[in-house]
Design a protein around this nucleic acid. Structure first.
Length: 269
DNA sequence: GCGACAG
DNA sequence: ATCTTGTCGC
């Protein structure tokens, strides 16, 4: 698949102010409501998916194509590896990856300018056209409502959602308990730190995709938010539906695995 | 100055 | 993200 809006491709050479200005533009054109044609209830994972062997040609089926995206960094620290795994009807239908030189360090709030290039390069190597992108990181849960998932979703103009393991900003509608039950969700509302939204606006959810039945240890929830063309509630629904026994939703879990595998097998020299 | 911060 | 073995608990 290719870039739909070249003007939004993340440029690491921009100044911090220019990056923030671009994010405000992106948040302005992003759609934080459902704006897709596929049937969200058609996306379900009853059991974990197998990654399978490399580069096998697979036939595509009928259901929506969901692509998970994740990054890893090569040992030289100067290159980012982005892996994409496309799933349909509970099976892998395509995979792609790309290795891109890292231009800037990690800066909270500007993650897309560090990893965005690698992601777009990986997506350009994907043969199928995803109906939904599941990106590791925040979407609307961001200082300017333009996190990694939003930036990527708007740039390729494909429905996208963000899945993060930690909360970047915003405030839970109610305190996150020490232990949330599987399936539970708590709204995340915009606070003073989200400079582009009115405080109280629901910008995402804490979602518990997996939890131990009992015991002293518990699994923390995921923090999911709309990227583009998906509402906050639908985002939480989709993440829950993509879970298959693991904390991470299948698309992201497989992309994670793929990135790690490529990192070790691939050139890190 | 202090706090807070995805990957 | 990444550095990293064993180990506590289901």
């Amino acid at each position: 698949m290719d870039v739909s809006r070249p003007e939004y491709v993340p440029d690491p050479s921009l100044s911090r102010d220019e990056m923030e200005a671009l994010q405000r533009e992106i948040a302005d054109v992003a759609l934080f409501e459902d704006g897709f044609a596929f049937d969200p209830s058609a996306i379900e994972f009853d059991s974990p998916v197998d990654l399978g062997d490399d580069d096998q040609h697979r036939l595509t089926g009928d259901g929506p194509i969901v692509a998970g995206v994740d990054q890893a960094f090569l040992d030289d620290g100067d290159r980012a590896l982005s892996a994409v795994v496309a799933l349909q009807d509970g099976r892998v239908v395509d995979r792609a990856y790309a290795v891109v030189d890292t231009e800037i360090p990690y800066i909270p709030g500007l993650l897309s300018f560090r990893e965005g290039g690698a992601i777009l390069a990986a997506l350009s190597n994907l043969a199928v056209e995803p109906d939904l992108l599941v990106v590791d990181g925040s979407g609307r849960i961001h200082f300017r409502e333009a996190g990694l998932a939003t930036h990527i979703g708007v740039t390729v103009d494909v429905p996208a959602i963000g899945v993060a393991k930690n909360l970047l900003c915003g405030t839970p509608a109610e305190p996150i308990p020490d232990r949330m039950a599987e399936g539970d969700r708590i709204p995340i509302e915009a606070d003073e730190r989200v400079e582009t939204a009115e405080p109280g606006t629901v910008i995402g959810h804490a979602v518990q995709t997996r939890q131990y039945q009992s015991g002293s240890t518990s699994i923390n929830p995921l923090y999911v938010s709309p990227g583009h063309r998906v509402s906050a509630v639908t985002t939480a629904d989709l993440v829950s539906q993509c879970a298959a026994g693991y904390k991470l939703p299948e698309p992201t879990r497989l992309a994670d695995r793929k990135a790690d595998r490529l990192k070790r097998e691939g050139g890190e020299a």
